[in-house]
Amino acid sequence: MIDSGEADGLLLVAVVDMSPGDPARGKQYEDAVLALLPRHGGTLQQRLHSTDARSEVHVIRFESRAGYNTFMSDPDRLSLRASFAEAAPTTRVIEVAEPHI
């Protein structure tokens, strides 16, 4: 695990699966939520889309674990989640580390 005090911060990969009923609406949700990252010290480093537009993979870096925690509890993010309801995607987040050679 990456220590929250480590200079490189926290590196995450998010595997996002859009709602089968409305993948376009799921993308709208992701666009809105990803725009909130900078207010918590987060940076979207890469955003990849599956060829069928039903999944995305995000590489996200936070300056600290605390920034990630405040992003997850951001009232605007939670409100978006509620307003998109069933159209909101499901996401699996994996903490990763870059090899130090």
Rank of each mutant, 00 (worst) to 15 (best):
I2Y: 10
I2H: 11
D3F: 13
G9L: 04
L10C: 12
V15A: 09
V16Q: 10
D17Y: 13
M18D: 09
S19D: 06
S19G: 08
P20C: 10
P20L: 07
G21T: 11
G21W: 06
G21C: 05
D22S: 12
A24K: 01
R25F: 07
G26M: 02
G26S: 05
K27C: 01
Y29T: 12
L34G: 12
L34A: 14
L37N: 03
R39S: 11
R39L: 04
H40L: 03
L44F: 03
L44R: 00
L44H: 03
Q46G: 13
Q46L: 14
R47D: 10
L48F: 13
H49N: 15
H49V: 15
S50A: 13
T51G: 05
D52P: 00
R54W: 04
R54A: 10
R54D: 03
S55F: 01
E56H: 10
E56T: 02
V57F: 10
R61A: 05
R61K: 02
F62R: 05
F62P: 04
E63A: 09
S64K: 03
A66V: 06
Y68E: 11
Y68S: 04
T70E: 10
F71Q: 05
D74I: 03
P75F: 14
P75L: 13
D76L: 09
R77H: 07
R77M: 06
R77Q: 09
S79K: 15
S79G: 15
L80H: 05
R81D: 08
R81E: 01
R81C: 00
A85N: 00
E86Q: 12
E86N: 10
A88P: 00
T90D: 10
V93F: 05
V93I: 07
A97K: 08
E98N: 01
P99R: 12
H100R: 06
